[in-house]
Simulated scan of single mutants.
Amino acid sequence: MDKVTLKARGISVSLDTTVGHIADMVVEDGGRQLRPLHRAPWVGAPRDTLPADLPEGTVRLSGDFLCAPFSRSDVEEAPLHGWPANSAWDVTESSAVDGGWRAVFRLRRKVMGASVDKILTLRDGHAFLYQEHVFSGGHGAISVAHHPMTAMTDGGRLAFSPKRFAASPTDPLEPDPTRGRFLLAYPGRTSDLGHFPAAGGGTLDLTDYRMDDRREDFVTLVEADHGGPGWTALARRAEDDLVLVLKNPAELPVTMLWFSNGGRDYAPWSGRHLGVLGIEDGRTAVGHAASIGDNWLTREGVATAFALGEGSSVSFRHVIGALPLSGTEPPQEVTTADGRMRLSGGGPAREVPFDSDFLRIGQAAAG
């Protein structure tokens, strides 16, 4: 694996440059090492032991990566989740900055004619990875999403910034019972995240990740208009930590949750992909063609792609962090201001260092 590691005081991040996936992220706090991101159990296995048609992004499935497009590449030929998730990136800059480290990576391939840069920044004493992606030039439009994955050995509890509603697609990820299983209703919809329609009747709580629920499920949460950062907080029980994922809703208006807990029986998943949750913030529907056309989200007034153009650029930012768990529940409110993040509700209130200008809340995204 070609790996580049960035470090600042109390945090390190390694990027697998062969596919642009974050191979590892370590936050040091009070003598503990917190590792918020997941790596698939087959990563590093001999290639000939895996299915021959598996995309490289699945072969090396790790941490977080850029999807462009999200899901099917059915406009411009590319593997699942596009070339940014499946092909090589080059380091173009990497150096110390005031109070931290900054590195820039460029995708060797182009996406819809656009060059793509990945900018990673670490700050001394901050428990967060600050990411920005920039598309320069190109034509047409592109859907995008981050794909951070975490994993739990004993489940966890979730909390979110205000959402308008949650909805599942028309079809489940694994409709064939000989290959896998699911628990949510497809399609399903609710404005109460604690009560999502279940496949067998009744409801399931999207805020409670239970290890005995063997399933492969997918649901999209649409951000409400609340004026703050979009955020997801996951209190992992056994790991005794809090995983935080933040975005600017004007840039990335949806959060897609992928519950992957032993719900696929075929290789390479083979029932061993356990306790995994994808927290996938995006500007997308499912598939490139669907995202740039009329779809169920655009009919709800939700943008699902960025417009590209020669001589112009578009960018979006994202944050992933980890903190020791305070209490047993995730916070119910997350606010950022004056170089701090404040977490309250669900346990004792606390503040931690945070670049409160990074997400540029209040600025509209183009495209």
Rank of each mutant, 00 (worst) to 15 (best):
I361M: 04
Y130F: 09
V219C: 11
T335N: 03
G138P: 03
A127Q: 11
R350P: 15
H126F: 15
F259W: 12
L297D: 04
T207C: 15
T220F: 08
P324V: 08
K110E: 08
W101V: 15
L343K: 01
P69M: 14
G275L: 02
F65T: 14
T232D: 02
R210Q: 09
A238D: 10
M211R: 06
W83K: 01
G202S: 07
T190Q: 05
W269N: 05
P348L: 05
R299K: 11
L343W: 05
L107E: 00
I22Q: 10
R237P: 07
G327V: 04
P353T: 03
H273I: 00
G362F: 14
A141I: 08
D53P: 14
V59P: 08
G309M: 07
T150R: 01
H147Q: 13
F105R: 01
E310V: 06
T207Q: 12
W296K: 00
W83E: 05
K247V: 14
R179E: 03
G180L: 12
A199H: 12
G301F: 12
G301P: 15
I320R: 00
G201S: 04
D154L: 03
F160H: 06
A159C: 04
F135I: 02
L308Q: 06
A159K: 00
S315K: 04
S191L: 00
A238L: 01
R47I: 11
L323Y: 12
T170A: 11
A8P: 13
S315C: 13
L129G: 09
H146W: 10
A78M: 12
V302E: 07
S136D: 10
A23D: 15
F306E: 08
F160G: 05
G282N: 10
W83M: 07
D16S: 06
R164K: 15
G137A: 03
L242G: 05
W42E: 01
E174T: 15
F358H: 09
M1N: 03
T178G: 02
L308G: 07
A233M: 09
P331V: 00
S73M: 09
D265F: 14
K110C: 00
R299M: 03
Q363T: 15
P55T: 04
G362P: 14
T203R: 02
P175G: 02
V286N: 07
S143V: 08
S315F: 13
W89R: 03
K3Q: 14
